[in-house]
């Protein structure tokens, strides 16, 4: 069974790689299979970890009947398939979205404030001055409604900000490479070591 597993994995790996040549039925088979498995797996995980325990343990055994309310709220989303009741599906969405927005306003300011106080750089070294200028200039780039013609200094500062960002993006690009190559290396190792066994 293990050997069969390695062959199956190798087949899928090659099918996906075949896209590098061009889109083809072999790739499409892998694509549809992955999507189908992913969709089913998501539902299975949620069912076993939450739906079933909520129904069986919380509601039936422990008698937490109040949980029927959120369960029904979640079920409202399925009204989307019936034109006349469609508007009901907006209620759970509004709940999730409003609740999420509340959490953003409750928790983000702490992290934001910390980022601000950490930018109180002591201007006593070149590096700290560069950090300070970089942060301020980049930040000014994101001011949208102050007219740059009326306040030319904003325009100049913002262009310093753009330069800073380009260096940051260059750094980010350079850093990414290592990880991506490692992942590809992982797949190549699988093909050569576990499947073909040409390397030990």
């Amino acid at each position: 069974m293990e050997t069969l597993g390695i062959w199956a994995a190798a087949l899928v790996t090659l099918a996906v790689f075949s896209f590098l040549y061009r889109e083809n039925p072999f790739y499409r088979w892998a694509e549809y299979t992955m999507v189908a498995l992913a969709a089913a797996n998501g539902a299975v995980v949620t069912y076993h970890n939450y739906v079933k325990p909520t129904l069986m343990t919380d509601i039936v055994q422990k008698g937490s009947y109040s949980l029927i309310i959120p369960a029904l709220l979640g079920l409202l989303i399925y009204t989307r398939y019936f034109r006349s009741m469609l508007w009901l599906s907006r209620i759970p969405i509004a709940y999730w979205v409003g609740y999420g927005a509340g959490y953003i306003l409750a928790y983000y300011p702490a992290t934001l404030l910390k980022q601000i106080t950490s930018s109180f750089f002591q201007l006593n070294s070149i590096n700290n001055v560069l950090l300070f200028v970089g942060v301020v200039a980049t930040f000014v780039y994101f001011i949208f409604t102050w007219n740059r013609e009326r306040y030319p200094i904003l325009g100049y500062t913002a262009s310093v900000g753009r330069w800073t960002m380009m260096i940051a993006f260059g750094t980010a690009f350079g850093s990414t490479v290592a990880f991506r190559f490692n992942l590809l290396l992982g797949r190549l190792q699988f093909l050569l070591q576990e499947w073909l066994r040409v390397v030990k």
Partner: peptide
């Protein structure tokens, strides 16, 4: 390594 540059502000702080 992809995430490192974006995390630097948090490391610095």
């Amino acid at each position: 390594s992809v995430m490192v540059p974006g995390y630097m502000p948090y490391v610095q702080s």
